[in-house]
Write a protein that binds this DNA or RNA. Sequence first.
DNA 1: AGACTTTATATTGGATACAATCTTTAATCA
DNA 2: TGATTAAAGATTGTATCCAATATAAAGTCT
Lengths: 223, 223
Amino acid sequence: MNFRAVDVAQTKSATEIVFDSLRQAIIMGELEDGAPLRQEEIAKAFNTSRIPVREAIARLEQLGLVETRRYKGAVVAAITNDEFDEIFDLRALVESDAIRRAVPMMTRASLVLARSCHEDFAKATAPEAWPDLNRKFHCSLYGAAQAPNYLKVINGLLDRLDRYLRVQLCLTDGMERATREHEAILSACESGDAERAASLTYDHVQGVKASVLDYLKTKRDQA
Amino acid sequence: MNFRAVDVAQTKSATEIVFDSLRQAIIMGELEDGAPLRQEEIAKAFNTSRIPVREAIARLEQLGLVETRRYKGAVVAAITNDEFDEIFDLRALVESDAIRRAVPMMTRASLVLARSCHEDFAKATAPEAWPDLNRKFHCSLYGAAQAPNYLKVINGLLDRLDRYLRVQLCLTDGMERATREHEAILSACESGDAERAASLTYDHVQGVKASVLDYLKTKRDQA
DNA sequence: AGACTTTATATTGGATACAATCTTTAATCA
DNA sequence: TGATTAAAGATTGTATCCAATATAAAGTCT
């Protein structure tokens, strides 16, 4: 296994580097569900000792990205279908309210930024970049609300979902549809209609959930 | 400084014991905002080394309960007025939706439990027990929704607010009013009216927020 | 005296070493 | 052979030691 350090700036401690890199690897799906995180192995990969690795894993556990059992180590935390459903509902709830708060505070600059993110997403061809660009677009909208705790909750939820979204994207019209729905949300923001933006965001998230659950269902039926 | 271990069961690692104890101490307000968490000192108090302490602090930081700066250590994370407002809004949003989901799934047993928690809260005389009993009551209602992620988010928000609520309680009619509002919420649940329960919960949380902000404002004006 | 430099101390970040526990393999017995 | 037990190896949990950095105190120069 070969991890690459996310940021090698000297202002970051080894713990932070390991944490960021592992988090990224999990979000990106480079580590499958249930994959064990061996401390020694990771320490070697980062050319450090086990201490920073342990602290990084402790943090990941708080985020719900890994599960650890005493003397058995940590594994990437899988998600049940019920949890999947639940987390999407939370997203829809919190993100729609976040955008409702954000719209009245949006400036010309923040709208320009958001449209730029939207275009980056629409033009993206590489599936592995999709979740990140999607997140950037949504957060560029929510950012105007100046609500760090909303963002923290939202990012925590996305962290746990991202790696499941990539697979689905390649097999459906997800990308095209997402772009269309993003455009609608963005234009609602530009016209200052907070309630419409909130409603569209809610439907967008619920739509993605339905699409993913449907995909998982058909895949299970085939097996 | 003298911490007491929350749970000394041998199935818990030192890291977990330190984590639980520190978290409890912060929530309970035994450690003031900005109070430094010296690793050596804590390690001595728990009769252990600094390693488990460091891991515990790393976890607390993920939860937003402490802030650490390289080579300067961790301090209990204070909260700005804006954040206070924001976190209460999040609570109102998520808790009202949690109870909306929970009501249709409540059983006779879960309602009995909730009423018991309600009575424990109503009868409580010691202010230091209030936040915990309040949380138990609310969570006994949300529990029926079988939504662990909702609960996790809610508990994370409460963790950051609890220590600020105690002070306010002693100086207002907060306790009496909370009991009255809890009774209304509970009876909405008992009659199976999810929308009313949700609406009452939303107003309850927003009411507490207004009361606390008002208290803080008058206190600041006096100074 | 006051400002700057230097040294000493305190504190955190990390590495190595050891102990506790789990897992796997080998050995033993029916 | 198959099951059971015992030993070896792997892996995590913790303690101790050293390094890096920050803070505080003492010293020096003008």
